[in-house]
Computed example of a mutant assay.
Amino acid sequence: MSTSSSLPKLPSGLAVPNTPLIAAALKYSRKHTTATTVNHCLRAAYFAVLLSRKLPAKDSEAVDLELIVYSNIMHDLGWSQDHTFISKDKRFEVDSADLARKYLEDSHYSGDWDKHRVQLMWDAIALHATPSFAQHKESEVTLAHLGVMADFFGPAFPGGAITIEEYKEIVTAFPRLEFRDQFLQIMCGLCAYKPETTYDNFVSDFGVAFGVDGKGKGKEEFEKARRATTFPHTLWHSLLACKQYE
């Protein structure tokens, strides 16, 4: 993978905004995550721009491609292995969104970002792994989410929106670099490092299926702890307990 801060135009003509902010964000992502994670984020950015050309617009306003690409590049900062960089008590998506917002606020690029634009960016990152929310939000939030999902589904993306040729072009430009294995280790690592942040989202499914080390360690203990936090064991029991006061 090239370490250049300039993002290429692909042979098909597909390109993403190559602004100074995008170059700086890419450098920041490379500093705090792995080359494998960076390539995943870049593929997501290119897939998002590709899908922005294919999917019907939600409104008449032009889509903010710089916002989408910035969000995609920064969306997995919460995967950092530096535990002084990420939180102990927030979902990785929220860590990523908070870090991306802080970077923007601390940089000299923030002058072009009003409060609404910053909030859209935060939402795009925080909701990128929650389709039941992201798909019903603004176009930028939806497209950032779909770009990430496209990197997992590839040509099997719902509706056939990604062709085999388009998929191969983007993956050739930004190779997977053993992404599958690293993704599993990151998900299970989050279950080990801050399990309470995973219980109400998809990350905990990896802890249940693969344990906290990706090889089955602690599966039963993790599942028992997660089950105790589910709504039938919390909200419903709490409602029953309130009966004595009614």
Score class of each variant (00 low, 15 high):
Met1Gln: 04
Met1Trp: 02
Met1Cys: 07
Thr3Asp: 11
Ser5Lys: 05
Ser6Pro: 03
Lys9Gly: 06
Gly13Ile: 13
Ala15Gly: 10
Pro17Ser: 09
Ile22Cys: 10
Ile22Pro: 09
Ala24Ser: 14
Ala24Leu: 08
Leu26Ile: 11
Lys27His: 14
Tyr28Met: 13
Tyr28Asp: 14
Arg30Ser: 12
Arg30Lys: 15
Arg30Gly: 15
Lys31Met: 13
Val38Asp: 06
Val38Pro: 04
Val38Lys: 05
Val38Glu: 06
Asn39Asp: 09
Leu42Ile: 07
Leu42His: 03
Arg43Met: 10
Ala44Asn: 05
Ala45Cys: 08
Phe47Gln: 11
Val49Thr: 15
Lys54Met: 10
Leu55Asp: 12
Leu55Ser: 12
Lys58Val: 08
Ser60Ala: 13
Ala62Pro: 06
Val63Gln: 00
Val63Phe: 01
Asp64Gln: 01
Leu67Gln: 08
Ile68Glu: 05
Ile68Leu: 02
Tyr70Cys: 04
Asn72Gly: 01
Met74Asp: 01
His75Gln: 06
His75Ser: 00
Asp76Gly: 03
Asp76Cys: 02
Gly78Ser: 03
Ser80Met: 02
Ile86Arg: 00
Ser87Val: 01
Lys88Pro: 00
Lys88Ser: 02
Asp89Thr: 08
Arg91Cys: 01
Ala97Asp: 12
Asp98Tyr: 10
Leu99Val: 12
Tyr103Lys: 04
Leu104Ser: 01
Glu105Lys: 13
Ser107Lys: 01
Ser107His: 01
His108Tyr: 02
Lys115Val: 15
Leu120Ile: 07
Trp122Ala: 06
Ile125Leu: 05
Ile125Arg: 02
Ala126Asn: 06
Ala126Gln: 05
Leu127Ala: 07
Ala129Val: 09
Ala129Thr: 14
Phe133Trp: 13
His136Ala: 15
Lys137Gly: 12
Leu143Val: 15
Leu143Ile: 14
Gly147Phe: 04
Met149Ile: 15
Ala150Tyr: 08
Ala150His: 03
Ala150Arg: 03
Ala150Pro: 05
Ala150Glu: 05
Asp151Ala: 09
Phe152Met: 07
Phe153Asn: 08
Gly154Ser: 09
Gly154Leu: 10
Phe157Thr: 12
Phe157Val: 08
Pro158Gly: 03
Pro158Met: 03
Gly160Tyr: 04
Tyr167Cys: 08
Glu169Thr: 06
Val171Phe: 10
Thr172Trp: 06
Arg176Gly: 14
Leu177Lys: 13
Glu178Met: 09
Glu178Lys: 15
Arg180His: 10
Asp181Pro: 04
Leu184Ser: 05
Gln185Lys: 09
Gln185Pro: 00
Cys188His: 02
Pro195Leu: 03
Pro195Ser: 10
Glu196Arg: 10
Asn201Phe: 07
Phe202Arg: 06
Phe202Ile: 09
Val203Tyr: 05
Asp205Lys: 07
Phe206Met: 02
Phe206Gly: 01
Gly207Phe: 00
Gly207Ile: 04
Val208Asn: 00
Phe210Gln: 03
Gly214Arg: 03
Gly214Tyr: 04
Gly216Ala: 07
Glu221Leu: 13
Phe222Gly: 11
Arg226Pro: 10
Arg227Ile: 14
Thr230Ala: 09
Phe231Cys: 08
His233Leu: 06
His233Val: 02
Thr234Asn: 08
Leu239Phe: 09
Leu240Met: 04
Lys243Ile: 12
Tyr245Phe: 15
Tyr245Ile: 14
